[in-house]
């Protein structure tokens, strides 16, 4: 306990708040023993060595600037001010929720739904296929809970974090993603939901089809179609619908390529499939050049730049989604 007191004084000394009488008692304590001096020296050393502390983080400047630009270019954004539900409405809603949950629980018991939870850690993306054939890519640091089998009326899943959904079309059973701040309801479509616990915003982005997002605690909702997104800020209570022409929010989901001595022809074939484009390689020798590299969640033109620098070839767009590869060598 005594030691703790002097560590406190040492802390004060280093932070610059030690008064003369404290300094005196600290000096006396130091003179008492070598052990005390050892403690003091360890603390000073720790203080000194901590100075250069900094975390490291990988930043893809191109991708993150694109994201920023998409926010800047939002002329069609509509802000929906959230109105708190009227009191009697809230009570009515609470009763309905109660009824629904009693009903839900009994149904839950009847059908004996078995829930499965999938977690992802840092830098981990997991692909899942659900019982109805829907495909889900779960982004890093996320938790996804889904039933082993769906019941017939609805397909309900839970998400904390971020995931991209490709929902199997079934007009009779809506697919509902229960998020931290609201529900996303669809029939069959592909879309992205981002709602991390530490972020105030929930972002729903639609690639194709129709999606409805309903924030919790409100009677409002937004309907989204292809290339639209809804941003719900629970702190400001705003729900903003806007265009997202380039689907920047979904970029993380685009494929990850890891090539190791892969012949260029094969590598371009893989890239082409993922991005839905075709390549024609003019130089025969170039086709077998080995390619090694990891192209993770990159924009296509960035990948082109890398390849152009590495092999000296040129990508020429000859028609929409068709590229000619000119020149270049290993």
């Amino acid at each position: 306990m005594k030691e703790e007191l002097y560590i406190k004084l040492l802390q004060k000394e280093l932070s610059g708040g030690l008064n003369p009488s404290e300094k005196k008692s600290l000096d006396e304590w130091l003179k008492q023993s070598i052990d005390n001096q050892l403690i003091a020296e360890s603390i000073r050393k720790a203080w000194q060595l901590s100075e250069g502390y900094s975390k490291d983080i990988y930043i893809d400047l191109d991708a993150e600037f694109l994201q920023l630009e998409s926010r800047i270019d939002e002329p069609e954004a509509v802000t929906v001010k959230m109105k708190p539900a009227r009191n009697w409405l809230k009570i009515a809603a609470a009763i309905i929720v109660l009824i629904v949950s009693v009903f839900g629980i009994s149904r839950f018991l009847q059908e004996d739904i078995h829930w499965v939870t999938q977690n992802t850690s840092e830098n981990q993306v997991v692909e899942l296929t659900l019982a109805d054939g829907s495909k889900i890519s779960l982004n890093q640091n996320s938790t996804f809970t889904y039933p082993e089998n769906f019941n017939t009326q609805e397909r309900r899943v839970k998400l904390s974090g971020e995931a991209f959904f490709e929902v199997f079309h079934n007009p009779n059973a809506p697919f509902i993603v229960e998020g931290r701040n609201g529900e996303t309801t669809v029939l069959g479509t592909s879309f992205n939901v981002r709602n991390y616990a530490l972020e105030a915003r929930t972002i729903v982005t639609v690639r194709d089809g129709k999606v409805r997002f309903s924030p919790n605690g409100s009677t409002q909702h937004v309907d989204l179609t292809a290339k639209e997104k809804a941003v719900f800020d629970k702190e400001r209570g705003t729900l903003i619908k806007s265009k997202d022409e380039r689907l920047v929010a979904i970029k993380w989901h685009s494929k990850v390529f890891d090539f190791e001595d892969t012949p260029l022809e094969q590598a371009l074939d893989e890239l082409g499939k993922a991005y839905n484009i075709e390549f024609e390689i003019l130089d025969e020798k170039l086709k077998s050049c080995p390619l090694t590299g990891n192209y993770e969640r990159k924009e296509l033109n960035v990948i082109f730049q890398y390849l152009e620098i590495s092999y000296g070839m040129k990508f020429i767009e000859v028609a929409p989604k068709k590229y000619k590869v000119e020149g270049g060598n290993c």
Binding site: E4, I7, K8, L10, Q11, L38, S42, I43, K45, A46
Partner: peptide
């Protein structure tokens, strides 16, 4: 002050074996 002291106590335990 308490949090700073706590941090230094933890860091000190890392450093001490090295300089002793």
């Amino acid at each position: 002050e308490n949090q700073m002291t706590k941090a230094l106590k933890i860091l000190r335990n890392v450093v001490q074996p090295h300089i002793s």
